[in-house]
Design a protein around this nucleic acid. Structure first.
Ligand code: MN
Ligand code: MN
Ligand code: ZN
Ligand code: ZN
Lengths: 159, 159
DNA sequence: ATTCTAAATGCAAGTTAGTTGCAACAAGTA
DNA sequence: TACTTGTTGCAACTAACTTGCATTTAGAAT
């Protein structure tokens, strides 16, 4: 009798990633751990396609069947709903996603010529939000804000 | 002999819309005038689909063959390239576009529950941009910025 | 450990936004 | 008026994203 296939049930990994998922009320699954790891590893916002392209490089994924692209969409959407990641438009022709770190006043400068992305922190939105609410007819609370700057990087300027 | 179809050649309308197009180096055509009028009339950013849906209401369009959807994409893209409109992400599940008015420090508050959009002006980006550039490794100029606030409108709070 | 159930995944099919190539046409200009 | 080049319409195509459904499995209850 050949050795039967090992059960695929996940061992209860108490990794940081698993904890992040559990704390949001998301079940800890192989696709979610993998996608979350991609976001953790990435230094800049990435698209659904880039997540899909990056997944096969993970050892966990190489060792088992690839993740269906439908699942990638659903995982990313669940992350977004739970506030694990945010959607950002860097005018790269598609939407990107990036992980939301604690105490987040984190934004981007983008080169409109070559697409280079750099982070910056502290946009001073709190006072802006106060006055915006004061002047608003309809709004009383602001929970999130996005700020992106678009310009030219040094390399592209000198071209 | 039945009256022959009038030539469709445009009379040189010296309207504001035509001037805007000409000043950007875009030829003044029926589709461009129509799409630009839609943007002018709109009080909030709209999607490609909304432009397409709004076009048939214009008298100029009713009086002649409808505008092909490929043309709508191309017109909107030409407007964006020339800086007539900007792309904004209000997290409505698609990208929106709105006309760029002169001296533009114009942004939005969006209700994450019902999608309501309100404008606000003056985000104080100039000082932010200065410090962002000062702290940046790669960037020396910033030409554009986006700021969007996301919260709950009064109606949705009380639900 | 075993059982149970709601949630997550994979697969296949479908939808639809958006693109491309090309021929016909028309805006701007001489 | 004629010319040239950018624009439009059409048809075909591509690829992103969605949906329905059967199967599997994580997490909790027993
Ligand atoms: Mn970032
Ligand atoms: Mn606006
Ligand atoms: Zn650059
Ligand atoms: Zn609302």
């Amino acid at each position: 009798m050949p050795t039967p296939a090992k059960p695929t049930r996940l061992t209860p990994v108490h990794s940081e990633l698993a904890t992040m998922l559990a704390q949001c009320g998301l079940k800890v699954t192989r696709p979610r751990l993998a996608v979350l790891k991609i976001f953790k590893n990435s230094t800049h916002p990435i698209s659904v396609q880039e997540v899909a392209a990056a997944l096969p490089s993970l050892p966990t994924i190489q060792a088992s069947p690839p993740i269906n692209s439908v699942t990638i969409y659903r995982v990313i959407d669940s992350f977004r709903q739970k506030g694990l990641i945010r959607e950002v438009n860097l005018r790269h022709g598609h939407l990107d996603y990036e992980i939301i770190e604690h105490l987040d006043d984190h934004h981007h400068i983008v080169c409109t010529s070559c697409g280079l992305v750099e982070d910056f922190y502290g946009c001073g939105a709190t006072s802006l939000i106060r006055t915006a609410i004061k002047n608003s007819r309809n709004f009383a609370t602001v929970n999130e804000h996005t700020v992106e700057l678009f310009g030219l990087c040094r390399k592209c300027i000198s071209l």
